[in-house]
Design a binder for these strands. Structure first.
Lengths: 98, 98
DNA sequence: CTTACATATTGACGTGTGTCAATATATGTT
DNA sequence: AACATATATTGACACACGTCAATATGTAAG
């Protein structure tokens, strides 16, 4: 339903997808992300992380002064599956894994 | 790459997803779509159809005075597959169908 | 060729969104 | 407590985007 819209909106930004690729399969703290992003300030990165966190697309874990983020691949997979079922039902697997 | 961003942007609107659901598995002309959409004017529907067409997410076919649209499920599937490979690689099938 | 109908385009308007500088909050250190 | 570092929040700004009324374009019929 509207969940698919929220997912699409969360993904609908180049910098957000850059952050997601950085967080794929590893944990990074905000400063590391900022260091790897060119031409994007720390507040902007923090803002994008907030949106991704709100959408459940990243995990967050505090460790001392720093906060580490990592991509939530499960949620991405669930949302992609929902998109497939909604908008490519004739191509999506009929039965989902339980 | 940036294609995933374009796909997400095209999907990032509730009315656009409503239109896509209407066009799932059938052809509708613009007036039919307008009739089934509440509180959305004909120019607005036309505008959304243009964005979906630009993104390759719908097929369009002229038939006399009317233009019929239908959802392009293949493109949706391709884009979802790309999202999966980019952002859920540990959950996506390793080998894609040729 | 004029008329009628279907769709697309234009122009204007309000709202949403990405961005940054400045500042606040949180945590650890001395 | 004072300070330093890491992250989040605020406020302001420009620009993108969704929306509609009005108009233009395309297509067929009389």
């Amino acid at each position: 339903m509207t969940d698919s819209v929220d997912f699409a909106k969360a993904m609908a930004d180049e910098n957000r997808q850059r952050v997601m690729r950085l967080l794929c399969c590893r944990w990074l703290c905000v400063n590391d992300i900022v260091a790897e992003m060119s031409n994007v300030s720390q507040p902007t990165v923090s803002h994008h992380l907030g949106i991704l966190r709100e959408a459940g697309l990243v995990h967050a874990r505090r460790e001392g002064k720093q906060v580490f983020y990592s991509l939530n691949q499960d949620e991405v997979a669930v949302c992609c599956g929902r998109l497939m079922r909604n908008f490519a039902p004739e191509l999506a697997p009929t039965v989902a894994e339980a």
